[in-house]
Design a binder for these strands. Structure first.
Lengths: 131, 131
DNA sequence: GTTTTTGCAAAATGTTTGCATTGTA
DNA sequence: TACAATGCAAACATTTTGCAAAAAC
């Protein structure tokens, strides 16, 4: 754990929600100006490999990173892109059935829910603050 | 539905599994040489918008496209990248709990299972044909 | 003293855009 | 005629790579 990686981890902790690499880069600049973009990616990849953070692929944009590493699922607002953690469903039956059906050995699972957040649902005018 | 979009749809149907835009582009070249890469993307986006195909974001690489539009889930081999359809779990309880927990109105859900396919599991030497 | 990491720029990858041209309703 | 789609190149966004210098073990 180098100072740079710690700085990236700190920046991730300070960002609310599930920031992208770009957001983490912007935040980390406040503490360690000049830290290279590539180093942020290096650090993020290293942290993901070590299991200290999660990398999420919620849509076709940039990856988002998540400090929470226990098993949990996510709800995405299709209007504003807000991403919220939710308690994971028990793996149970679904994983077992998927294993039988596919012949795969299954290690994990992640469910992504799609919907509309409270703000986007209340006012259809698009004044949701998360946009 | 233009001839180009039909050609893209045909190419998708001919590709086994869940091809990327690049694979679809390569395949469509056989029928309509010279069809532009951007047109393939245009066509894919138009088809996704119309609900004729699905766009999947399984990892940080290229999007994969899926002819199957009924609700179903996917199993990903973390070694070779093979992606297999499986029957979707009933939405039921999990979605409802996610809605309560997040305050979102939830329209849909997709579960991604992670594991290892039969080939990758049998021989750890990496002779899996899907790689 | 060897191995890993950083920093930088440049490359690779995946996708979209601007715009003139073509085709279609 | 109007409207949308194509084709092309170039732009854009995201992420990785190559390599020299610096730091860590």
């Amino acid at each position: 754990m180098t100072p740079q990686r710690q700085a990236v981890l700190d920046a991730l902790a300070e960002c609310s929600g599930h920031p992208t690499a770009a957001e983490i880069y912007a935040r980390v600049q406040q503490r360690r100006p000049g830290l290279a973009y590539a180093t942020v990616y290096n650090a993020l990849n290293a942290l993901v490999e070590r299991g200290l953070i999660l990398q999420l692929h919620v849509d076709d944009g940039a990856s988002r990173y998540d400090l929470r590493t226990d098993r949990h699922d996510h709800v995405l607002c299709v209007d504003c892109g807000a991403l919220v953690d939710v308690t994971a469903a028990r793996p149970g039956r679904a994983a077992q059935r998927a294993a039988v059906e596919s012949g795969f050995i299954i290690h994990g699972q992640h469910t992504q829910f799609y919907g509309r957040c409270l703000s986007c649902n209340d006012d259809r005018a698009g004044t949701c603050k998360n946009v």
